[in-house]
Amino acid sequence: MKTGIVVFPGTNRERDMAQAFRVVSGRTPQMLWHQQDSVEGFDLIVLPGGFSFGDYLRSGAMGAHSPIMKAVRQFAEKGGYVLGVCNGFQILTEAQMLPGALLRNAGMRFLSQDCHLKVEGRDSIFTSGWKHGDVFRAPMAHGDGNYTAAPDVLDRLEGEGRVAFRYCTAEGQVKDGDEHVNMNGSARSIAGVLSENRRVCGLMPHPENLTEEILGGTDGLPLFNGIMEALG
């Protein structure tokens, strides 16, 4: 599997992401500067977390129009796999490669803490490392993670099994209106979604930051194991 990690000005989680892939595959992903106009030869493109372009205008808005995104879009249209975490998720929604948008957290606070996620996505390499309904812990660090979309879009995502992850309690209970569980106020507690062909996935929390015991746990490993098993 050949993985490329896109680096925008202000990206800051690219090395955490590279380390997670190194842990499961023994191989180091290649960093791709945002001004490149080709992503040929890769199996997976990752848009990592950070604050691309200082979150100016809207989080992810400027990054979505960087030269490399044209190539990433074409790559996805041809069936390429794309993963966006945190700012990467924001960029994917701004680029309209995933539906919806990420608004300011409902409580206005930047949230830097652990959350629990329920695995709900179906038929996707991004969720295949878990069993449907599994619950895992993941760190989050964002100011704009409040997922929103039109009600019919939300219905469609749910109907098609394209809600990849939902915020929940440690026991797996989803509580939309509870600010201690659905901390950023996301519509229907949605933390991550899949594209129509299930090959593009975006999520706000950071599974890559829990992939080794020295980091405090390996709860995020199944994401990378699932990808590795599928793409080799």
Binding site: L57, R58, H65, A101, L103
Partner: peptide
């Protein structure tokens, strides 16, 4: 339409 506004929201 291209950048200044996100018409989703």
């Amino acid at each position: 339409r291209a950048l200044l506004a996100n018409e989703v929201i």
